[in-house]
């Protein structure tokens, strides 16, 4: 993706071909909106208003429709995020087994509040609802993978691996 301005998306010809492939998978091409937004986010890091408008044109949809979709789902980021995203589950089983301690430890180690990104842009820390891995509670998602059960030691080891 070439980035004309911060957060402004314009897809490469290869990516546009992938958009058309995704649109062709469904009886109505608009159904490919979520996967295409995912593609745009992967390429651009987050979804800006400019990206929403750009994607809207690819679908003949209004920017308002795209905005409504982007703001409905938790996995779409509307601001730049860290190079890594840590999402700690704070739902019931994880809560019973110490999610709050895990979050406190992460906040102290990273020097950020929940929702914040470290100054060096390394990690964004979030707390989220059930990730459906309660057998490894307390647990968290680190980018693509699930980690648990969390202790101060396992958290430190995981953080060391994030560059």
């Amino acid at each position: 993706m070439s980035v004309a301005g911060a957060g402004t998306a314009e897809l490469t010809p290869e990516q546009l071909a992938e958009v058309r492939r995704l649109q062709g998978l469904y009886p109505d091409k608009r159904a490919a909106l979520l996967p295409v937004l995912q593609l745009a986010q992967d390429a651009c890091g987050y979804i800006s208003l400019e990206t929403e408008a750009y994607v809207a044109r690819l679908f003949d949809l209004s920017p308002a429709h795209v905005h409504e979709v982007v703001t409905f789902y938790t996995l779409f980021f509307r601001e730049p995020k860290g190079r890594h995203v840590i999402s700690v589950c704070h739902n019931l089983t994880c809560h019973l087994l110490g999610a709050e301690d895990a979050i406190a430890h992460l906040k102290a180690r990273l020097g950020v509040e929940v929702g914040g990104t470290t100054k060096d842009g390394r990690v964004t820390l979030l707390s989220v609802e059930c990730l459906c891995a309660c057998e490894m509670a307390p647990m968290m998602q680190v980018d693509d993978r699930y980690e648990g059960p969390l202790t101060p030691e396992t958290i430190d080891r995981i953080l060391e691996g994030l560059q």
Binding site: L92, T93, E129, C132, A133, C134, E135
Partner: peptide, 11 residues
Amino acid sequence: DEGEPGTFKDR
């Protein structure tokens, strides 16, 4: 779309 808190079988 497994999501019900406490459930992880479909995974």
